[in-house]
Computed example of a mutant assay.
Amino acid sequence: MIKNYLKTAWRNLVQNRSTSIISVAGLAVGICCFLLLATYLINELRYDRFHAKADRIVRMVFSYQSADDKEPRNTAMTQTAPLPLFKQQFSEIEGGVRIFGYDNERGAAVQYSNKLFSEKKMLLADDGFFDIFSFKFLSGSATKALSDPSSVVLSASTAKKYFGDEAPVGKVLKVNQKDLMVTGVIEDVPAYSQMKFDMIASSAISTRSKELRWDAANNYSYFLLKPEASYKAVEGKINAYFNNLFKSENNRGGKAWYTLEPLADVHLKSNFQGGLEPSGNIKYIYILGSVAVILLLLACVNFLNLVTARSAERAREIGVRKVMGARRGQLFFQFITEAGIITMFSIGLGLLLLKLCFPWFSNFTGQQLALIPGILHGWPVH
């Protein structure tokens, strides 16, 4: 019986080639567009959620407004002094780390043997960076990776570039004339991380990290809060302490304050400029999500319209089948089989179009997107 349904359905589709091709093509394009947009949206929504402690990590950002300013100035960068002081002052803070850029405009001159490269994606971080953030180590120890002032951790592709098949750990790289020992190799940083780096070294090699200053914002500060701590409560305590510390400055008409942002909200919900990478916008996610659903619905409606348009033509066929003894259930399954064949062809063609368009789409968005099954890697954490 099923074989007869399939045979009859295929015959009807072949006899109406134009309608069948339009149905398959329209639905396939809709599926392809929906999956492309869905891939991009998932990539945006899973930003920084792969860290095991993501729900307890917050970024501290800074706002200030002088007596002459009409609007506050917001910056993602903070001074070098507050993080060590606040970490010591408040028991709700389990740990903290400052991250410094390493002159990423010119890049760091890195030399090993006769190989010389300019590394644009190099960061400096305090010891404890890998205790807070979860980057998978392929070799070396996460707990001791940046404990030595002359240590550096490489991404897998960077280690391959310098050392080939040699074991990188223990090798020495000359970075801007400073000898740094490789203490670990991690997997390449995911595209859905706000911290994109090929090399990360101990901040102890920079004088900036040793000068605890309040008058220059040049680093990014992240706290790891204790499980029971509320980031809003900690934010309130920080600002009360800070305002008391600089009471005389506030009396002159100016004001400054800190804001704590949950790590998972930084990419899409932060309006602070100057972060490790440009922020997205959650409003665009809602808009693109709506567009993706609308495109798929339009493709489905187009398919239904074509089926409805053919119903009048097939009225005679249905009448003949009834006269020959066909029951309602048999007619239903016959039409469902035809719709199923069109749908399967459409899905197959849609996936083929997705594979062909994906490299172009990934390049267009400027992100390293991943197809299924990689699309769900690192999402969600909890």
Rank of each mutant, 00 (worst) to 15 (best):
L225P: 14
M344P: 13
S209W: 10
I372E: 15
A326Y: 04
W10D: 07
S346V: 00
A299Y: 06
S270I: 12
K247W: 04
S91V: 13
A229V: 08
T365N: 02
C357W: 11
S157Q: 11
L260T: 09
G275K: 06
R310Q: 12
L371T: 07
V291K: 14
A125S: 09
N176Y: 05
D68W: 13
L35A: 03
V182M: 05
E94L: 04
G274S: 02
P359D: 13
K115A: 07
T365W: 04
P84V: 09
I372K: 00
G164F: 14
A38C: 13
T39V: 04
F246K: 05
Q273W: 15
W10R: 06
I2K: 14
D126G: 12
V61G: 00
V29S: 07
G95Y: 09
K178N: 06
F333H: 06
W379Y: 15
N12W: 06
Q65G: 00
A52W: 12
S118G: 08
S66F: 06
Y40N: 05
L180W: 06
L306S: 03
N244E: 14
I99F: 02
I282G: 05
I342M: 00
L180S: 05
G107H: 11
N4F: 12
M181W: 01
N243I: 11
A25W: 05
D265Y: 14
R316M: 08
A264E: 15
L154Q: 04
G170E: 01
G184P: 01
S311F: 11
A240D: 10
V172D: 09
E166V: 11
F335E: 00
N176A: 09
E235H: 07
W257D: 04
V291L: 15
S155D: 11
F130H: 06
L123W: 14
F246P: 09
S155G: 14
G107V: 05
S63W: 10
S221C: 02
A216L: 15
N243C: 00
Y258L: 08
L296R: 04
M324I: 08
K161Y: 05
Y284A: 12
N104L: 13
L298I: 15
F129Y: 15
Q334P: 11
D179W: 03
I200L: 07
M1R: 14
K3I: 13
L37T: 08
N12L: 08
M199T: 04
T78F: 09
S141T: 07
R49Q: 12
K178Q: 09
Q330W: 15
N4T: 09
G274K: 04
F62M: 00
T80L: 05
A52V: 15
L288T: 06
F129G: 02
V152D: 01
R314S: 01
I342Q: 00
P262V: 00
V189Q: 10
E187R: 01
A76R: 03
F135S: 01
H51Y: 13
F223C: 03
L212I: 05
S290F: 14
M181Y: 03
I22S: 04
N239K: 07
D126H: 09
A339Y: 11
A292E: 04
F223T: 02
K144F: 02
R213N: 03
